[in-house]
Design a protein around this nucleic acid. Sequence first.
DNA 1: GCGAGGATTATGTATAGACTTATTCCCGAC
DNA 2: GTCGGGAATAAGTCTATACATAATCCTCGC
Lengths: 238, 238
Amino acid sequence: MVTYRSIKAEILDGIIRRRWAPGDLIPNEEDLARDYGCSRSTVNRALQELADLGILERRRKAGTRVAQRTSRGALIQIQIVRNEIEQSGRRYGYVLLERAEAWAGSETAALIDAPRGAALMHLRCLHLADGAPWQIEDRLISLAALPTAREVDFEALSPNEWLVTQVPYSRSEHIFSAEPASAEERERLRLRPDEPVFVIERRTWLAGQALTYVRLSHPGLAYRMISREDDLLAAPEA
Amino acid sequence: MVTYRSIKAEILDGIIRRRWAPGDLIPNEEDLARDYGCSRSTVNRALQELADLGILERRRKAGTRVAQRTSRGALIQIQIVRNEIEQSGRRYGYVLLERAEAWAGSETAALIDAPRGAALMHLRCLHLADGAPWQIEDRLISLAALPTAREVDFEALSPNEWLVTQVPYSRSEHIFSAEPASAEERERLRLRPDEPVFVIERRTWLAGQALTYVRLSHPGLAYRMISREDDLLAAPEA
DNA sequence: GCGAGGATTATGTATAGACTTATTCCCGAC
DNA sequence: GTCGGGAATAAGTCTATACATAATCCTCGC
Protein backbone atom coordinates (compact mmCIF):
# COMPACT_ATOMS: atom_id res chain seq x y z
CA MET A 1 0.00 0.00 0.00
CA VAL A 2 1.11 3.56 -0.60
CA THR A 3 1.69 5.34 2.69
CA TYR A 4 3.06 8.78 3.39
CA ARG A 5 6.13 7.03 4.72
CA SER A 6 6.74 5.15 1.50
CA ILE A 7 6.36 8.36 -0.49
CA LYS A 8 8.77 10.11 1.85
CA ALA A 9 11.28 7.32 1.39
CA GLU A 10 10.94 7.35 -2.38
CA ILE A 11 11.35 11.10 -2.67
CA LEU A 12 14.32 11.04 -0.32
CA ASP A 13 15.85 8.27 -2.34
CA GLY A 14 15.30 10.25 -5.54
CA ILE A 15 17.07 13.23 -4.02
CA ILE A 16 20.02 11.28 -2.71
CA ARG A 17 20.42 9.40 -5.96
CA ARG A 18 20.30 12.72 -7.81
CA ARG A 19 17.14 12.11 -9.73
CA TRP A 20 16.48 15.65 -8.54
CA ALA A 21 19.45 17.87 -7.76
CA PRO A 22 19.38 20.69 -5.20
CA GLY A 23 17.24 23.48 -6.59
CA ASP A 24 15.22 21.20 -8.85
CA LEU A 25 11.47 21.36 -8.90
CA ILE A 26 9.71 18.12 -8.05
CA PRO A 27 6.25 17.34 -9.42
CA ASN A 28 3.32 19.02 -7.76
CA GLU A 29 1.14 17.27 -5.23
CA GLU A 30 -1.65 16.44 -7.63
CA ASP A 31 0.68 14.79 -10.13
CA LEU A 32 2.44 12.82 -7.44
CA ALA A 33 -0.89 11.72 -6.02
CA ARG A 34 -1.90 10.44 -9.45
CA ASP A 35 1.46 8.73 -9.98
CA TYR A 36 1.36 6.99 -6.64
CA GLY A 37 -2.33 6.31 -6.82
CA CYS A 38 -3.14 7.97 -3.55
CA SER A 39 -4.84 11.12 -2.38
CA ARG A 40 -3.24 14.54 -2.33
CA SER A 41 -3.42 14.60 1.47
CA THR A 42 -1.06 11.69 1.65
CA VAL A 43 1.44 13.28 -0.69
CA ASN A 44 1.05 16.53 1.22
CA ARG A 45 1.99 14.91 4.49
CA ALA A 46 5.07 13.29 3.00
CA LEU A 47 6.31 16.52 1.40
CA GLN A 48 5.46 18.56 4.44
CA GLU A 49 7.56 16.37 6.68
CA LEU A 50 10.49 16.46 4.29
CA ALA A 51 10.18 20.23 4.28
CA ASP A 52 10.21 20.23 8.08
CA LEU A 53 13.45 18.29 7.92
CA GLY A 54 14.87 21.00 5.71
CA ILE A 55 15.22 18.67 2.74
CA LEU A 56 12.56 20.32 0.60
CA GLU A 57 11.48 23.92 0.21
CA ARG A 58 7.90 24.65 -0.62
CA ARG A 59 6.20 27.81 -1.77
CA ARG A 60 2.63 28.30 -2.85
CA LYS A 61 2.23 28.49 -6.56
CA ALA A 62 6.00 28.16 -7.02
CA GLY A 63 6.00 24.46 -6.15
CA THR A 64 8.33 22.21 -4.23
CA ARG A 65 12.09 22.22 -4.71
CA VAL A 66 14.99 20.26 -3.33
CA ALA A 67 16.65 22.55 -0.79
CA GLN A 68 20.08 23.97 -1.48
CA ARG A 69 21.61 22.43 1.56
CA THR A 70 24.52 24.71 2.27
CA SER A 71 24.22 23.85 5.90
CA ARG A 72 23.18 20.94 7.92
CA GLY A 73 22.43 20.62 11.56
CA ALA A 74 23.93 18.65 14.40
CA LEU A 75 21.59 18.09 17.30
CA ILE A 76 23.25 18.12 20.68
CA GLN A 77 21.39 16.44 23.51
CA ILE A 78 21.95 18.32 26.73
CA GLN A 79 20.83 16.25 29.65
CA ILE A 80 21.07 16.15 33.39
CA VAL A 81 24.71 15.68 34.36
CA ARG A 82 23.88 12.86 36.68
CA ASN A 83 22.13 10.87 33.96
CA GLU A 84 24.95 11.50 31.53
CA ILE A 85 27.44 10.05 33.99
CA GLU A 86 25.33 7.17 35.25
CA GLN A 87 24.38 6.13 31.73
CA SER A 88 28.03 5.64 30.93
CA GLY A 89 28.20 3.26 33.88
CA ARG A 90 30.09 5.54 36.26
CA ARG A 91 29.27 6.57 39.81
CA TYR A 92 27.93 10.09 40.14
CA GLY A 93 29.13 12.49 42.79
CA TYR A 94 28.18 16.06 43.63
CA VAL A 95 29.50 18.82 45.88
CA LEU A 96 28.08 22.27 46.48
CA LEU A 97 31.00 24.67 46.64
CA GLU A 98 29.30 27.98 47.19
CA ARG A 99 25.88 29.50 47.55
CA ALA A 100 25.24 33.21 47.81
CA GLU A 101 22.65 35.84 47.06
CA ALA A 102 23.54 39.12 45.45
CA TRP A 103 22.31 41.94 43.28
CA ALA A 104 23.31 42.00 39.66
CA GLY A 105 26.21 44.25 38.77
CA SER A 106 26.64 45.27 35.16
CA GLU A 107 28.67 42.18 34.28
CA THR A 108 26.42 39.59 35.85
CA ALA A 109 23.36 41.40 34.56
CA ALA A 110 24.71 41.03 31.04
CA LEU A 111 25.49 37.35 31.59
CA ILE A 112 22.01 36.42 32.66
CA ASP A 113 20.21 39.10 30.62
CA ALA A 114 18.47 40.57 33.67
CA PRO A 115 18.23 44.26 34.62
CA ARG A 116 20.99 45.71 36.77
CA GLY A 117 20.23 45.42 40.45
CA ALA A 118 18.09 42.30 39.99
CA ALA A 119 18.21 39.78 42.83
CA LEU A 120 20.30 36.76 41.90
CA MET A 121 21.41 33.54 43.47
CA HIS A 122 24.93 32.48 42.71
CA LEU A 123 25.84 28.79 42.95
CA ARG A 124 29.05 26.91 42.31
CA CYS A 125 29.13 23.15 42.25
CA LEU A 126 31.36 20.29 41.27
CA HIS A 127 30.07 17.16 39.56
CA LEU A 128 32.16 13.98 39.73
CA ALA A 129 32.33 10.75 37.75
CA ASP A 130 33.75 7.80 39.67
CA GLY A 131 35.24 10.29 42.10
CA ALA A 132 37.09 12.24 39.40
CA PRO A 133 36.13 15.86 38.71
CA TRP A 134 33.86 16.01 35.69
CA GLN A 135 32.25 19.43 35.55
CA ILE A 136 32.22 22.73 37.37
CA GLU A 137 28.78 24.30 37.33
CA ASP A 138 28.83 28.04 37.90
CA ARG A 139 25.29 29.31 37.92
CA LEU A 140 23.21 32.44 38.30
CA ILE A 141 19.49 32.15 39.00
CA SER A 142 17.10 35.07 38.74
CA LEU A 143 15.25 35.27 42.05
CA ALA A 144 12.68 37.56 40.52
CA ALA A 145 11.70 34.81 38.11
CA LEU A 146 12.33 31.87 40.44
CA PRO A 147 11.85 32.94 44.06
CA THR A 148 11.33 29.32 45.13
CA ALA A 149 15.04 28.73 44.51
CA ARG A 150 15.55 30.19 48.01
CA GLU A 151 13.78 27.20 49.54
CA VAL A 152 15.69 24.50 47.69
CA ASP A 153 18.35 22.48 49.47
CA PHE A 154 21.13 22.64 46.90
CA GLU A 155 23.39 20.56 49.11
CA ALA A 156 21.19 17.59 48.31
CA LEU A 157 19.98 18.42 44.80
CA SER A 158 22.15 20.04 42.18
CA PRO A 159 20.76 23.23 40.63
CA ASN A 160 21.11 21.53 37.25
CA GLU A 161 18.77 18.77 38.31
CA TRP A 162 16.31 21.04 40.06
CA LEU A 163 16.03 23.35 37.10
CA VAL A 164 15.78 20.69 34.43
CA THR A 165 13.09 18.75 36.23
CA GLN A 166 11.14 21.60 37.81
CA VAL A 167 11.51 24.70 35.69
CA PRO A 168 10.13 24.97 32.17
CA TYR A 169 11.59 27.45 29.74
CA SER A 170 10.54 28.64 26.34
CA ARG A 171 13.76 29.96 24.89
CA SER A 172 17.41 29.09 25.27
CA GLU A 173 20.86 29.90 23.99
CA HIS A 174 23.96 27.72 24.09
CA ILE A 175 27.56 28.74 23.49
CA PHE A 176 30.36 26.18 23.22
CA SER A 177 34.02 27.08 23.41
CA ALA A 178 37.53 25.93 24.26
CA GLU A 179 39.31 28.04 26.86
CA PRO A 180 42.60 27.96 28.69
CA ALA A 181 41.93 26.76 32.23
CA SER A 182 41.91 29.25 35.07
CA ALA A 183 44.00 28.50 38.15
CA GLU A 184 40.88 27.48 40.02
CA GLU A 185 39.70 25.18 37.24
CA ARG A 186 43.14 23.61 37.07
CA GLU A 187 42.91 22.77 40.72
CA ARG A 188 39.27 21.76 41.04
CA LEU A 189 39.23 19.71 37.84
CA ARG A 190 42.74 18.37 38.47
CA LEU A 191 43.90 19.35 35.02
CA ARG A 192 47.29 18.67 33.53
CA PRO A 193 49.42 21.81 33.11
CA ASP A 194 48.41 22.70 29.55
CA GLU A 195 44.99 21.09 29.60
CA PRO A 196 42.18 23.40 28.43
CA VAL A 197 38.52 23.32 29.46
CA PHE A 198 35.54 22.64 27.24
CA VAL A 199 32.94 25.23 28.17
CA ILE A 200 29.20 25.18 27.68
CA GLU A 201 27.33 28.35 28.51
CA ARG A 202 23.55 28.28 28.63
CA ARG A 203 20.96 30.96 29.13
CA THR A 204 17.24 30.28 29.45
CA TRP A 205 14.14 32.44 29.39
CA LEU A 206 10.46 31.87 30.02
CA ALA A 207 8.04 34.15 28.23
CA GLY A 208 10.69 36.82 27.77
CA GLN A 209 11.93 36.76 31.36
CA ALA A 210 15.48 35.58 32.04
CA LEU A 211 15.69 32.52 34.30
CA THR A 212 19.27 31.39 34.56
CA TYR A 213 22.77 31.57 33.21
CA VAL A 214 25.19 28.71 33.65
CA ARG A 215 28.80 28.06 32.73
CA LEU A 216 29.75 24.41 32.66
CA SER A 217 33.44 23.65 32.33
CA HIS A 218 34.85 20.18 31.64
CA PRO A 219 38.38 18.80 31.48
CA GLY A 220 39.42 19.09 27.83
CA LEU A 221 41.16 15.74 27.66
CA ALA A 222 38.32 13.77 29.18
CA TYR A 223 35.27 15.38 27.65
CA ARG A 224 33.79 15.09 24.18
CA MET A 225 30.39 16.21 23.04
CA ILE A 226 28.92 13.83 20.50
CA SER A 227 26.02 14.12 18.08
CA ARG A 228 24.85 11.36 15.79
CA GLU A 229 22.36 11.71 12.97
CA ASP A 230 20.52 8.51 12.12
CA ASP A 231 20.73 7.19 8.61
CA LEU A 232 17.95 8.79 6.61
CA LEU A 233 17.86 5.92 4.17
CA ALA A 234 17.88 3.02 6.58
CA ALA A 235 15.20 3.53 9.17
CA PRO A 236 11.47 3.14 8.64
CA GLU A 237 11.71 6.86 9.51
CA ALA A 238 10.75 8.96 12.48
CA MET B 1 -11.07 30.30 13.70
CA VAL B 2 -9.58 27.23 15.35
CA THR B 3 -6.48 26.13 13.52
CA TYR B 4 -3.98 23.41 14.32
CA ARG B 5 -1.57 26.22 15.14
CA SER B 6 -3.88 27.80 17.68
CA ILE B 7 -4.41 24.43 19.33
CA LYS B 8 -0.68 23.84 19.40
CA ALA B 9 -0.16 27.22 21.03
CA GLU B 10 -2.86 26.63 23.63
CA ILE B 11 -1.56 23.21 24.59
CA LEU B 12 1.99 24.52 24.77
CA ASP B 13 0.81 27.36 26.93
CA GLY B 14 -1.02 24.94 29.19
CA ILE B 15 2.14 22.90 29.60
CA ILE B 16 4.39 25.85 30.29
CA ARG B 17 1.93 27.35 32.76
CA ARG B 18 1.71 23.97 34.48
CA ARG B 19 -1.90 23.26 33.78
CA TRP B 20 -0.44 19.89 32.90
CA ALA B 21 2.81 18.84 34.57
CA PRO B 22 5.34 16.50 32.97
CA GLY B 23 3.88 13.01 32.96
CA ASP B 24 0.28 14.23 33.03
CA LEU B 25 -2.27 12.88 30.63
CA ILE B 26 -3.94 15.43 28.44
CA PRO B 27 -7.48 14.92 27.09
CA ASN B 28 -7.85 12.60 24.15
CA GLU B 29 -8.25 13.82 20.60
CA GLU B 30 -11.99 13.40 20.47
CA ASP B 31 -12.56 15.41 23.64
CA LEU B 32 -10.24 18.16 22.52
CA ALA B 33 -11.94 18.27 19.14
CA ARG B 34 -15.28 18.74 20.86
CA ASP B 35 -13.86 21.37 23.24
CA TYR B 36 -12.29 23.36 20.45
CA GLY B 37 -15.16 22.77 18.06
CA CYS B 38 -13.04 21.35 15.29
CA SER B 39 -12.41 17.97 13.74
CA ARG B 40 -10.19 15.31 15.20
CA SER B 41 -7.81 15.65 12.24
CA THR B 42 -7.00 19.17 13.29
CA VAL B 43 -6.31 18.19 16.88
CA ASN B 44 -4.30 15.25 15.64
CA ARG B 45 -2.03 17.46 13.61
CA ALA B 46 -1.43 19.80 16.53
CA LEU B 47 -0.59 17.00 18.94
CA GLN B 48 1.48 15.14 16.40
CA GLU B 49 3.68 18.16 15.82
CA LEU B 50 4.14 18.75 19.53
CA ALA B 51 5.12 15.10 19.83
CA ASP B 52 7.64 15.58 17.00
CA LEU B 53 9.14 18.43 19.00
CA GLY B 54 9.52 16.08 21.93
CA ILE B 55 7.06 18.02 24.06
CA LEU B 56 4.38 15.34 24.13
CA GLU B 57 4.54 11.57 24.19
CA ARG B 58 1.77 9.61 22.57
CA ARG B 59 0.86 5.96 22.71
CA ARG B 60 -2.12 4.25 21.21
CA LYS B 61 -4.77 3.46 23.71
CA ALA B 62 -2.60 4.91 26.49
CA GLY B 63 -3.21 8.49 25.40
CA THR B 64 -1.07 11.61 25.20
CA ARG B 65 1.18 12.76 28.03
CA VAL B 66 3.43 15.71 28.65
CA ALA B 67 6.96 14.40 28.14
CA GLN B 68 9.32 14.13 31.08
CA ARG B 69 11.87 16.46 29.62
CA THR B 70 15.05 15.38 31.30
CA SER B 71 16.96 16.55 28.30
CA ARG B 72 16.62 19.22 25.75
CA GLY B 73 18.38 19.74 22.48
CA ALA B 74 20.66 22.39 21.08
CA LEU B 75 20.75 22.51 17.32
CA ILE B 76 24.08 23.46 15.87
CA GLN B 77 24.11 24.77 12.34
CA ILE B 78 27.17 23.57 10.51
CA GLN B 79 27.64 25.53 7.35
CA ILE B 80 30.22 26.23 4.70
CA VAL B 81 33.18 27.98 6.32
CA ARG B 82 33.19 30.66 3.69
CA ASN B 83 29.57 31.61 4.34
CA GLU B 84 30.13 31.60 8.08
CA ILE B 85 32.96 34.10 7.68
CA GLU B 86 31.38 36.27 5.01
CA GLN B 87 28.10 36.48 6.90
CA SER B 88 29.93 38.01 9.82
CA GLY B 89 31.20 40.68 7.43
CA ARG B 90 34.78 39.49 7.15
CA ARG B 91 36.88 38.69 4.10
CA TYR B 92 37.31 35.00 3.42
CA GLY B 93 40.67 33.49 2.51
CA TYR B 94 41.71 29.95 1.70
CA VAL B 95 44.99 28.09 1.22
CA LEU B 96 45.52 24.46 0.26
CA LEU B 97 48.42 23.20 2.35
CA GLU B 98 48.69 19.61 1.26
CA ARG B 99 47.09 17.13 -1.08
CA ALA B 100 48.03 13.46 -1.21
CA GLU B 101 46.63 10.05 -2.03
CA ALA B 102 47.27 7.09 0.18
CA TRP B 103 45.97 3.75 1.34
CA ALA B 104 44.31 3.56 4.69
CA GLY B 105 46.46 2.29 7.55
CA SER B 106 44.74 1.01 10.64
CA GLU B 107 44.52 4.45 12.23
CA THR B 108 43.16 6.35 9.28
CA ALA B 109 40.82 3.48 8.46
CA ALA B 110 39.34 3.81 11.93
CA LEU B 111 39.02 7.57 11.57
CA ILE B 112 37.01 7.45 8.39
CA ASP B 113 35.33 4.10 9.06
CA ALA B 114 36.63 2.54 5.84
CA PRO B 115 38.29 -0.87 5.43
CA ARG B 116 42.06 -1.04 5.81
CA GLY B 117 43.85 -0.54 2.53
CA ALA B 118 41.04 1.61 1.08
CA ALA B 119 42.15 4.38 -1.29
CA LEU B 120 41.98 7.76 0.41
CA MET B 121 42.71 11.34 -0.45
CA HIS B 122 44.26 13.39 2.31
CA LEU B 123 43.84 17.18 2.25
CA ARG B 124 45.01 19.87 4.60
CA CYS B 125 43.80 23.44 4.21
CA LEU B 126 43.74 26.70 6.06
CA HIS B 127 40.73 29.02 6.11
CA LEU B 128 41.24 32.69 6.95
CA ALA B 129 38.99 35.51 8.14
CA ASP B 130 40.26 39.00 7.29
CA GLY B 131 43.67 37.45 6.74
CA ALA B 132 43.82 35.89 10.21
CA PRO B 133 43.89 32.09 10.54
CA TRP B 134 40.42 30.82 11.34
CA GLN B 135 40.34 27.09 10.82
CA ILE B 136 42.59 24.20 9.85
CA GLU B 137 40.72 21.61 7.81
CA ASP B 138 42.35 18.20 7.90
CA ARG B 139 40.35 15.85 5.72
CA LEU B 140 40.18 12.30 4.48
CA ILE B 141 38.01 11.44 1.48
CA SER B 142 37.17 7.89 0.49
CA LEU B 143 38.11 7.54 -3.17
CA ALA B 144 36.12 4.35 -3.43
CA ALA B 145 32.97 6.31 -2.62
CA LEU B 146 33.96 9.57 -4.31
CA PRO B 147 36.35 8.88 -7.21
CA THR B 148 35.50 12.26 -8.78
CA ALA B 149 37.43 13.93 -5.96
CA ARG B 150 40.54 13.17 -8.06
CA GLU B 151 39.35 15.59 -10.73
CA VAL B 152 38.57 18.51 -8.44
CA ASP B 153 40.91 21.50 -8.26
CA PHE B 154 41.19 21.91 -4.52
CA GLU B 155 43.49 24.89 -4.95
CA ALA B 156 40.49 26.84 -6.16
CA LEU B 157 37.65 25.23 -4.23
CA SER B 158 37.94 24.08 -0.65
CA PRO B 159 37.02 20.44 -0.02
CA ASN B 160 34.53 21.72 2.53
CA GLU B 161 32.68 23.67 -0.11
CA TRP B 162 32.92 20.96 -2.76
CA LEU B 163 31.52 18.33 -0.44
CA VAL B 164 28.76 20.40 1.07
CA THR B 165 27.45 21.58 -2.28
CA GLN B 166 28.07 18.46 -4.37
CA VAL B 167 27.96 15.41 -2.17
CA PRO B 168 24.83 14.27 -0.39
CA TYR B 169 25.06 12.09 2.68
CA SER B 170 22.51 10.19 4.66
CA ARG B 171 24.21 9.79 8.02
CA SER B 172 26.65 11.87 10.01
CA GLU B 173 28.46 12.05 13.32
CA HIS B 174 29.92 15.12 14.99
CA ILE B 175 32.33 15.27 17.92
CA PHE B 176 33.23 18.54 19.61
CA SER B 177 36.14 18.93 21.99
CA ALA B 178 38.73 21.26 23.50
CA GLU B 179 42.33 20.19 23.00
CA PRO B 180 45.75 21.58 23.76
CA ALA B 181 47.20 22.92 20.53
CA SER B 182 49.86 20.94 18.70
CA ALA B 183 53.05 22.72 17.67
CA GLU B 184 51.80 22.90 14.10
CA GLU B 185 48.43 24.33 15.13
CA ARG B 186 50.16 26.88 17.31
CA GLU B 187 52.12 28.05 14.32
CA ARG B 188 49.50 27.87 11.59
CA LEU B 189 46.71 29.36 13.69
CA ARG B 190 49.11 31.82 15.36
CA LEU B 191 47.97 30.86 18.81
CA ARG B 192 49.08 32.40 22.04
CA PRO B 193 51.29 30.11 24.14
CA ASP B 194 48.58 28.51 26.24
CA GLU B 195 45.72 28.89 23.77
CA PRO B 196 43.79 25.67 23.11
CA VAL B 197 41.94 24.67 19.94
CA PHE B 198 38.24 24.06 19.56
CA VAL B 199 37.92 20.91 17.50
CA ILE B 200 35.02 19.67 15.41
CA GLU B 201 35.32 16.19 13.96
CA ARG B 202 32.79 15.05 11.41
CA ARG B 203 32.20 11.75 9.67
CA THR B 204 29.66 11.23 6.93
CA TRP B 205 28.20 8.19 5.21
CA LEU B 206 25.92 7.61 2.26
CA ALA B 207 23.85 4.46 2.29
CA GLY B 208 26.23 2.76 4.70
CA GLN B 209 29.39 3.68 2.81
CA ALA B 210 31.88 6.04 4.48
CA LEU B 211 32.49 9.26 2.56
CA THR B 212 34.74 11.52 4.57
CA TYR B 213 36.30 12.30 7.89
CA VAL B 214 37.32 15.83 8.77
CA ARG B 215 38.98 17.48 11.74
CA LEU B 216 38.38 21.22 11.96
CA SER B 217 40.46 23.08 14.52
CA HIS B 218 39.83 26.70 15.53
CA PRO B 219 41.68 29.14 17.77
CA GLY B 220 40.13 28.74 21.21
CA LEU B 221 40.11 32.42 22.06
CA ALA B 222 38.50 33.53 18.82
CA TYR B 223 35.96 30.85 18.16
CA ARG B 224 32.59 30.17 19.76
CA MET B 225 29.88 27.89 18.52
CA ILE B 226 26.45 29.31 19.16
CA SER B 227 22.99 27.78 19.12
CA ARG B 228 19.80 29.70 19.70
CA GLU B 229 16.36 28.19 20.24
CA ASP B 230 13.49 30.46 19.25
CA ASP B 231 10.92 31.35 21.84
CA LEU B 232 8.25 28.67 21.73
CA LEU B 233 5.65 31.04 23.13
CA ALA B 234 6.29 34.05 20.97
CA ALA B 235 6.35 33.03 17.34
CA PRO B 236 3.37 32.18 15.17
CA GLU B 237 5.25 28.86 14.99
CA ALA B 238 7.45 27.14 12.44
C1' DG C 1 -4.69 -15.63 42.48
C1' DC C 2 -3.31 -15.96 37.79
C1' DG C 3 -2.86 -16.26 32.92
C1' DA C 4 -4.98 -16.30 28.22
C1' DG C 5 -7.38 -13.98 25.17
C1' DG C 6 -10.89 -11.11 23.60
C1' DA C 7 -13.17 -6.42 23.98
C1' DT C 8 -12.16 -1.72 24.19
C1' DT C 9 -9.93 2.43 23.30
C1' DA C 10 -6.82 6.12 21.71
C1' DT C 11 -3.87 7.09 18.36
C1' DG C 12 -2.23 6.32 13.36
C1' DT C 13 -3.21 6.78 8.70
C1' DA C 14 -5.77 7.28 4.29
C1' DT C 15 -9.49 9.56 1.54
C1' DA C 16 -12.28 12.88 -1.10
C1' DG C 17 -13.62 17.22 -1.11
C1' DA C 18 -13.69 22.12 -0.28
C1' DC C 19 -12.00 26.41 0.55
C1' DT C 20 -7.95 29.73 1.56
C1' DT C 21 -3.83 32.09 0.53
C1' DA C 22 0.54 33.32 -1.32
C1' DT C 23 2.79 33.75 -5.67
C1' DT C 24 3.56 33.89 -10.15
C1' DC C 25 2.36 34.82 -14.68
C1' DC C 26 0.51 37.28 -18.20
C1' DC C 27 -2.17 40.60 -20.51
C1' DG C 28 -3.70 45.00 -21.36
C1' DA C 29 -3.42 50.06 -20.46
C1' DC C 30 -0.42 53.69 -20.65
C1' DG D 1 8.79 49.08 -22.41
C1' DT D 2 6.74 48.90 -17.77
C1' DC D 3 3.45 48.94 -14.54
C1' DG D 4 -0.86 47.47 -12.45
C1' DG D 5 -4.05 44.21 -11.74
C1' DG D 6 -6.49 40.11 -12.52
C1' DA D 7 -6.30 35.02 -13.67
C1' DA D 8 -4.21 30.88 -12.65
C1' DT D 9 -1.77 27.78 -9.82
C1' DA D 10 0.26 25.08 -6.08
C1' DA D 11 0.58 24.67 -1.52
C1' DG D 12 -1.91 25.28 3.16
C1' DT D 13 -5.56 23.92 5.95
C1' DC D 14 -9.96 21.98 7.61
C1' DT D 15 -13.66 18.49 7.47
C1' DA D 16 -16.02 14.09 7.93
C1' DT D 17 -15.35 9.52 7.62
C1' DA D 18 -13.34 5.07 7.64
C1' DC D 19 -10.44 1.58 8.85
C1' DA D 20 -5.84 -0.07 11.01
C1' DT D 21 -3.07 -0.96 14.91
C1' DA D 22 -1.09 -1.03 19.37
C1' DA D 23 -1.86 -1.19 24.04
C1' DT D 24 -4.58 -1.68 27.87
C1' DC D 25 -8.28 -3.46 30.44
C1' DC D 26 -11.21 -6.88 31.84
C1' DT D 27 -13.40 -11.10 32.14
C1' DC D 28 -13.48 -15.83 32.23
C1' DG D 29 -11.72 -20.24 33.15
C1' DC D 30 -8.88 -22.59 35.96
